[in-house]
Design a protein around this nucleic acid. Structure first.
Lengths: 211, 211
DNA sequence: TAAGCTAGGTAACTTTTGTTACAAATTAAT
DNA sequence: ATTAATTTGTAACAAAAGTTACCTAGCTTA
């Protein structure tokens, strides 16, 4: 475990903190598609992402989903941070986008480390900042872009996250994450294909242009 | 100044911190409509809102605006927090929604207080949390609601913020903040009036139902 | 091989939102 | 008082997005 921790967080945390994390943290491996946290659940530990990617989703009363953003290596869920502190329920759903490795930190340690380690404080602040930035990007997309632009952006981000320009995904799954209907997605994907930006196959989409 | 500080932040901060704030902070009064911060500007001090309300706006490349949320008494701009720390530019625009009073804190003090005062740390964390929650609400509105629902919600929130059920506002101004066109707003306002939710007058809107 | 399932394509239609244009009412300015 | 500017109302149309329905291609599996 030490090696992977050091790889992802070595530059961020001082050795004493790394050692503590190593001692009190629990290593966890999840496979793609696995649910890590759901709306309304209480949070008992804080995840440090060591490898892979996690997607963070929001849901409305009708159960319709919307992708908010992805977490990558070296990041944590900012929602967790305050949910822990305030002992409130989760406002979001977290699902492993790829196979992923995490270190789970018991929440009691969080406050302790906040006074004890400057690097921890900075990490927490940085996480909040990053998450707010991601939320701004999300707002920009849904407020200012039309669905075809959002779709292309979504595909390009997915390519970045999974590290493969061919995405194994169905139109229905995309529709869920962008909160629209399958027919709309099929229509716009066809349009993007005609523009030469992607190539469509059964169960997969090849993203050509990433610019 | 002490009295207003104590009123808004007395329950939050320990006396020693209040005293420091009082010493190093500069009192600032702004009137409704005044711009406090713009996109791309560097942030040199952090505002603690003592009275009034501030609206936080986002802008796209075309200069189109979108209202993100309001700050009220006892709150601060979470964006500022990290912009200070990372010495990055502001991502948002802040405009006084009502006449407002602020205490401006030099950013050097921020980090100092973060190690020194637990209540300051908690305040900063709480601010981040509140801002993330606001952003979630914003995303919910623009992603899951139709324009007429967003409009009604907007009007009701405005009533809360200004503390008056009659809003002095034009259709055009609403259109800017919701990022749509004046014609759309006029149309939907007429519909809401027919439903008995509001009453329309020139330069003002009376909000009837707040449920 | 036949039946059944899933994924995707597409037509036809509706609703929602955005755009253009113009008129009427009110207020402000000269 | 006349002119000009602002605000609102509304019609007519266009574009974007959502819905329903049905078809076909390719797997799966009985």
């Amino acid at each position: 475990m030490i090696s992977e921790l050091k790889e992802s967080y070595g530059g961020l945390f001082e050795d004493a903190l790394l050692a503590e994390i190593n001692q009190v943290g629990t290593f966890k491996e999840v496979s793609a598609g696995q649910k890590l946290m759901d709306i309304g659940e209480y949070i008992r530990s804080m995840p440090l992402l060591v490898s892979g990617a996690i997607k963070i989703l929001r849901e409305d009363e009708d159960g319709d989903e919307l992708l908010l953003y992805f977490l990558e290596r070296g990041e944590t869920c900012a929602m967790t941070l305050t949910c822990c502190m305030g002992h409130t329920k989760s406002e979001i759903r977290a699902i492993a986008e790829t196979d992923a490795k995490l270190v789970m930190i018991p929440i009691q340690k969080m406050e302790e480390w906040t006074s004890k380690y400057k690097s921890w404080r900075n990490f927490v602040f940085q996480s909040y900042h990053d998450r707010l930035e991601e939320m701004l990007k999300t707002v920009d997309s849904i407020a200012f872009l039309k669905m075809d632009e959002r779709l292309l952006k979504y595909l390009q981000e997915k390519v970045h996250i999974v590290g493969d320009s061919t995405l194994k995904i169905t139109h229905q799954e995309i529709a869920y994450e962008l909160h629209t209907s399958r027919v709309v997605i099929s229509r716009l994907l066809k349009k993007l294909e005609k523009l030469g930006k992607i190539k469509l196959h059964r169960n997969s989409i090849e993203v050509i242009s990433v610019d």
